[in-house]
Write a protein that binds this DNA or RNA. Structure first.
Lengths: 124, 124
DNA sequence: TGTTTGTATTATAATAAATGATACAAAAGG
DNA sequence: CCTTTTGTATCATTTATTATAATACAAACA
């Protein structure tokens, strides 16, 4: 499994791991029933401590995206992710993105077109 | 100026201040030429240390949203925010939002409608 | 000069992130 | 049963970030 981890990013490593797995599953690149690499393996691949990967996996487990057993490691659940899609957190993050785009000069139409394309690319 | 700061949030206080000012300007609630409260004043209003507010203002200054002079404090610039609206950061954040919504069961159409409404509400 | 503003500086404390090392428990397979 | 492999727990340490307090300085006016 290829995860791109930016060691210089503001985003903590464990969050990056989590985010990329969420994205990979949503996009269909990783499917329900697929196994994820073991904690030790992924840690080795990325070059981080196993506990860092473990933190990502624990998050994913808590969110419902993965199921874990001790012998076989983590695999993708077919139940999706817990929670409401459109909660206040979603709205706040989306609104901030939109606001920043507007402040950087994007028109309403630009933002709409751009985001609709992103939605289509995630759902394709 | 009323800013809502959630002291329990994961998001650092200075980021919340910054975010709300960006949003307020993008939404038109705060206009180019408007003055922001002084660092000391806003810190007092919110109940945080002035250096925390100063960090937010320094960010906003760096981003181009505010202009600062030592006598009169911060005011909103009319130049908007530096940077490209649709940079890789925008796309990554948007894609993650979309991916999470999908994982929580939202259909493509649901996501489109919801976000288009948010865009309209920001731009109104 | 006095006042007000942002900014700089120093130091401290708390929290978060990341790590290393080790050990334990669970679950299978031989 | 023993061995292996897996996640998990635990402890300790280090580093980075956030937030603070206090103080002082510089800038820009009235």
């Amino acid at each position: 499994m290829i995860l791109k981890i930016d060691m210089t990013s503001d985003i903590p490593i464990y969050q990056q791991i989590r985010n990329q797995i969420v994205f990979g599953v949503a996009k269909g690149n990783i499917k329900a029933g697929d196994s994820l690499p073991t904690v030790r393996q992924l840690a080795n691949d990325i070059g981080v401590n196993p506990m860092t990967v473990n933190k990502a996996y624990a998050l994913l487990k808590e969110e419902g995206i993965i199921l874990i057993d001790r012998r076989h490691g983590a695999k993708i659940s077919n139940l999706g992710m817990k929670g409401n899609a459109f909660d206040p957190d979603f709205d706040q993050r989306a609104e901030l993105l939109i606001a920043e785009a507007r402040m950087k000069g994007a028109s309403r139409q630009d933002v709409k077109m751009h985001i609709l394309n992103l939605i289509d690319s995630v759902y394709e």
